[in-house]
Design a protein around this nucleic acid. Structure first.
Length: 236
DNA sequence: CGTATTTGACCAGCGC
DNA sequence: GCGCTGGTCAAATACG
């Protein structure tokens, strides 16, 4: 049951919403088919990925625990050009991470989180640094909820991520033949939004962009109540 | 009939 | 200041 989840046809890539150049890291996708890569807050990602993977995958817990560490450290340490060139020959089931030019503070959060983790720093330190940078950024640009996007090869536009969404808009964006859809979380007091569109160069790829953080647990009930509760504990 | 989706209008940010 | 573009609103429509 759980051990089958590593066998999936869904290809996820966490990437820059504008650069849209997936960079492979060479990890087996631990998430079930048609289920989106968990929409995590950046600094929560480390905890969440390492916590969830052991419950979903047949991978040994030790390698799963290293998953997030390696994922983020590789992305942080390697120069962008190197990451891009390493994409050649991908084609497998990979998770990938890329620097975000659009959301620099989000990327900095990831970086700071990793650094503090490496240096034995605590979350307070990480949040403190992040808050200071946020303040500077806010001064020169409009405040925006933390957001990131990922790319999934899927026939369906709206992937099951455990939350209920209501569509509130659709827009044809420039230089794309596919419309972009706008969704809002249906939960009261939850201001999380997501955008869904198909990649112009490859319509098989669905680009999902999350903005904000859920203030509640996923609403749909999975058959596997154990993994549901784990997800509820760690996501957002 | 209540809820979700569609879609044109409107608004705000940004670049020139 | 103006025009372009993306994001949101809200009335109309569809659906169960």
């Amino acid at each position: 049951m759980m051990s089958t989840t590593s066998q999936t046809s869904v290809n996820h890539s966490l990437f820059d919403e504008q650069d849209q150049i997936p960079t492979q890291m060479g990890f087996t996708n631990p998430f079930p088919p048609n289920q989106a890569f968990p929409p995590l807050g950046c600094h929560q990602s480390l905890k969440s990925i390492s916590a969830i993977v052991p419950s979903l995958s047949s991978e040994p817990a030790s390698s799963a625990a290293n998953f997030a560490e390696t994922l983020f450290s590789t992305a942080v340490q390697r120069p962008r050009e190197d990451l891009t060139s390493s994409l050649v020959g991908g084609g497998g089931e990979h998770l990938s991470l890329n620097r975000s030019r659009v959301n620099p503070w989000a990327w900095e959060e990831v970086t700071n989180c990793l650094m503090s983790k490496r240096m034995g720093g605590d979350d307070n330190h990480h949040l403190g640094v992040s808050a200071m940078k946020m303040k500077k950024i806010k001064a020169r640009r409009k405040v925006r909820e933390p957001r990131f996007c990922f790319k999934t090869m899927s026939d369906v536009d709206v992937l099951d991520d455990g939350y209920k969404w209501r569509k509130y808009g659709q827009k044809v964006v420039k230089n794309t033949q596919h419309p972009r859809s706008y969704y809002r979380c249906t939960q009261d007091n939850c201001r999380v939004k997501k955008r869904v569109e198909r990649l112009a160069e490859d319509p098989r790829m669905v680009i999902t962009t999350y903005e904000g953080r859920h203030v509640h647990s996923p609403s749909n009930e999975l058959e596997d109540s154990q993994s549901t509760s784990e997800l509820s504990n760690f996501l957002w």
